[in-house]
């Protein structure tokens, strides 16, 4: 086993270990932190594969963005410090079964895919190429999905703002009255 393989297994162990801890811990904030480690591990895996751009994007989007959002929403909930109740047995069994079937499915898939050694040059992950591909209008360009996704994000953002907008004083008072 060469050093590269050792690193691979170390990273994989980190990812899997953190992922298991993320779902088994009873403290919600810790679970977010384990998730973070798991995602950082995935980024490390990308670095190991020398696709640095994807790795950096993985960190920017998932770690810098999504986990921070998750942590913020945990802050905003009141019971963040307390231990959550243990999940019911039935739920545990069901989830374990679901996970196991997922693993079985993946292993099955990998086993049936005959990996063959290629002599082709390693694919080019140059940022330049990625940028070109992303915004090109030729047959393999991604300009259309790129724009569609940006529209989707814009819509999501507008929706967020609408939800987050505080009701004015008068409406909130009437709401309270209704609740009472």
């Amino acid at each position: 086993m060469n050093i590269s393989a050792i690193i691979f297994y170390a990273i994989s162990a980190l990812i899997l270990g953190a992922a298991i801890l993320a779902v088994t811990t009873l403290k919600i904030f810790r679970s977010a932190i384990w998730l973070l480690f798991s995602l950082v591990g995935v980024a490390a895996l990308y670095f190991w594969m020398q696709v640095e751009f994807i790795a950096a994007i993985q960190i920017v989007v998932y770690v810098g963005g999504i986990v921070v959002l998750i942590i913020f929403s945990i802050f905003l909930t009141q019971q963040s410090g307390k231990e959550m109740p243990k999940p019911a047995k039935g739920k545990v069994i069901f989830s374990a079964l679901a996970a196991l079937s997922g693993i079985a499915f993946t292993i099955n898939l990998i086993n049936h895919y005959g990996f063959t050694n290629t002599s082709a040059a390693p694919f080019n992950a140059n940022v330049h190429e990625i940028g070109m591909q992303m915004l090109s209008t030729t047959s393999h360009g991604f300009i259309l999905p790129f724009e569609v996704v940006s529209m989707l994000l814009l819509a999501a953002m507008v929706g967020c703002i609408v939800i987050a907008m505080k009701p004015t004083e008068s409406t909130s008072i009437t709401l309270n009255k209704k609740e009472a």
Binding site: E52, A56, I59, V60, V63, G64, G65, V68
Partner: peptide, 26 residues
């Protein structure tokens, strides 16, 4: 001398907020 130098920097520096959030919450 990573080929995504500045992107790497902005990616990693976004991690530092996690440490602060962790410290503040814990």
């Amino acid at each position: 001398d990573i080929n995504i130098g500045v992107l790497y920097i902005s990616a990693i520096s976004s991690l530092s907020v996690i440490g602060i959030l962790m410290a503040g919450w814990a």
